[in-house]
Nucleic acid binder design. Sequence first.
DNA 1: CTGTTAGCGCCTTCAG
DNA 2: CTGAAGGCGCTAACAG
Lengths: 339, 339
Amino acid sequence: MANIRDVASLAQVSPITVSRVLNNPETVSPATRVRVEAAIEELGYIPNQIARSLRSNRTNTLALVLTDITNPFWTSVARSVEDAASAQGFNVILCNTDEREDKQEEYLSVLLRKRVDGFLLVPTRSEASAVESILRQKVPIVVLDRSVPGAAVDVVRSDSEAGAYGLTRHLLELGHRRIAILSGPSVVSTAQDRVDGYRRALTEAGIPQNEHWVLEGEYTVESGYAVARQLLAGAELPTALLGANNFIALGAMQAIRERGLHIPNDLSVVCVDDIPAWLVGEPFLTVAAQSPYDLGRQATELLLRQIREPGQHPPQEILLTTELIVRHSTAAVNGNQRK
Amino acid sequence: MANIRDVASLAQVSPITVSRVLNNPETVSPATRVRVEAAIEELGYIPNQIARSLRSNRTNTLALVLTDITNPFWTSVARSVEDAASAQGFNVILCNTDEREDKQEEYLSVLLRKRVDGFLLVPTRSEASAVESILRQKVPIVVLDRSVPGAAVDVVRSDSEAGAYGLTRHLLELGHRRIAILSGPSVVSTAQDRVDGYRRALTEAGIPQNEHWVLEGEYTVESGYAVARQLLAGAELPTALLGANNFIALGAMQAIRERGLHIPNDLSVVCVDDIPAWLVGEPFLTVAAQSPYDLGRQATELLLRQIREPGQHPPQEILLTTELIVRHSTAAVNGNQRK
DNA sequence: CTGTTAGCGCCTTCAG
DNA sequence: CTGAAGGCGCTAACAG
């Protein structure tokens, strides 16, 4: 592959002149510029961005470290991040941690070595250590979706507590009193927040809490299925079920169907996170919808601002609202079920 | 950020010794090794991969250039590519072209400058120019999902022709004679292939082809919706509809519902590409399912082999089969509709 | 407007 | 086992 010196000698100029034609064409006389451009063309010269990066300390690359691109929520985030990044000349490296601390650590370490210009991180745990390992290197970072108490970072996330609160309120208004929550990993802030919102709604309604109905699992279909199955095998059934995310609810719905129960007649189901309408035809689930595209876009813009104007922006938290969308997976409690 | 010389002076050794501790620890005496490691630790030294890449001509980065990560088919591909790549120490840069030639060109150019080690490309057109611009630079590339006649590249794709043929046969066996196909952009090989498969089945069945029922659109929900709407506004309605991909079918189904028609009683709908079952609860569409995870994995492994053993693997094409999955969106033609 | 010098951080080559 | 020299490709800084 031709380099800048090859071009220079073919065009009978010095390498720096070629560099100028590439980066500041107006500082080169038209005559030599034409000669250089011809040489570039002839050799099929492609400037080496690695060398440039070594000098400039800029890679024009962002890292997007999330849990699983396969969840449509994260798919949307990834799409918006890539849109916002490429609009400003940045590429995006995608990484799936599957909520695993070890994978996250490995990715962060590799990406730091690659000198990405910034991180968009969905941390696997609320603990600050991973975030701080990046802050310590003074590499810009924006935390996505989850809070990291004690770390001075930018965070862009949805109001999970309010989302879960709204869903629980909705169920209460339908007459439900026996409401189970299938939550995510307790090390993740959104899981805690959603349980908090659920509890607040119950408390406000003066309903005693049954700890057997606060169940912790993973944010996956499999886990939602397994936990729901176990729950439904018990003697006393809830009349409503709150999935802490879309995947948990989808898994739970499968368990419910297999158990021969009807949604919403026998059991109402709600969750945080929507599923894109165009994917499912007629949307069925009552949800507290987040705005993943917005989440990704705002986070990326924040990050790019940090990169362009280092040290000018004190850490801030952007909290997006969720929207309660009532559909067909919830119904009033029927007589039989009421205690 | 500390560099190798800082570490060296702190440890009282030369930079090359630090380098050896990092890359060939066994060639350094335990005593100095410990000293160097302590210095690394103390300074929080992170090796600069850019400098290393400049020397080694390796970035350990792959480019994944696809049309739209938002389509669950590509989401799956992206997931498998990232899995296979990271298992072998490579990162993945994600790019969405939206089937646009100009975006693709821009991405390829930037990525060539970044000296990615290889490309996984879903070309926007069957034309070979984009692929050849990469081959010319001797950068490894594997074409995904689509064929590029005339280019000597590795290709991993599904047998679209057979998939569409199978779907059409299925409809014919159900008694359908008026079958419309909503195809994708004719510049894309899969769209051509799927129309070919459709035509072959009709021809074999001795059914005259109605060119009004071969409709070209984009591979998007919006386009599927628009084209179906137009089709359904016509005087003569088909009894079955073949969407060239999942998005087209989803859009078409919406148009069908809005028109007040029932699937499959009034109209059968099939398509190429499945939608992940766990996403939709009870899968409804009869499809020719591809294996996106497999597609991505095989392509990535092919690419990594090319990267590791340059020039040892003549271009090959891997053709994956599709699987006909009959569900609830197809039914036998009813009496009213038969001509 | 153009060129020379030097160095970004690392590692291959060759000596010691 | 350790080090010195040199260069990967590019571009600031400083001439001319």
